[in-house]
Amino acid sequence: MTTTRPVQVHFDDLDAMGLLHNSRYALLVERAVSAFWTEIGWHFDPAVSRFKDVFMAVKEFKITYHMPIMGAGEVQVEFWMEKLGNTSGVYGFRVLSADGSVVHADGHRVNVNLDPATFRPTPFSQETRDAAQVLLPTG
Rank of each mutant, 00 (worst) to 15 (best):
G85W: 06
Y25I: 02
V103W: 04
R129Q: 00
M56P: 07
T118F: 02
N86S: 12
T122D: 02
H10F: 13
R5F: 05
A117K: 14
P121I: 09
S88I: 14
P123A: 06
T2K: 15
K83C: 08
I40P: 07
F79A: 01
V134T: 02
T3Q: 12
S97Y: 02
W80S: 15
T3R: 13
V33E: 01
Y25K: 00
Y25C: 04
R94P: 04
D130P: 03
V95L: 04
V7F: 06
Q8P: 00
R94V: 10
L20P: 11
T38C: 10
S101V: 06
T4I: 13
F119E: 07
V110G: 05
V75H: 09
V95Q: 08
E82M: 00
H108Y: 08
V54C: 15
K59E: 09
P6K: 14
Y91E: 03
A47P: 08
G18T: 15
W80Y: 07
E60T: 11
S49C: 11
R5G: 05
D130K: 00
F44W: 15
R24P: 06
L19I: 05
T87I: 13
M67R: 14
Q133K: 06
T118N: 03
D13H: 13
I63Q: 06
H66M: 13
A131M: 12
S125V: 01
I63H: 03
Q133W: 00
H66S: 13
A35D: 15
G73K: 11
V112L: 00
A35Y: 06
E127V: 11
E127C: 07
H10I: 02
W80T: 14
T3D: 07
L114M: 09
F11E: 09
R31D: 03
H21N: 02
P68G: 05
Q8V: 12
A32G: 01
V110Y: 03
R5A: 08
F11R: 04
A35Q: 13
T4R: 04
F51N: 08
F61H: 04
V54E: 11
H104R: 05
W80P: 09
F44M: 09
D45R: 08
R50L: 08
Y25H: 11
H43T: 04
A72K: 08
M1K: 03
L136W: 02
D53K: 02
D53P: 04
A35I: 10
N113S: 13
V110R: 03
S88E: 11
E30F: 08
L14V: 05
E30A: 07
V90R: 00
A98S: 11
T64I: 09
R109S: 06
D13S: 10
A32F: 01
L19H: 15
K59L: 05
H43S: 13
G73E: 07
S23K: 06
M81E: 10
N86I: 07
V77D: 08
Y25P: 06
S88T: 12
D99K: 12
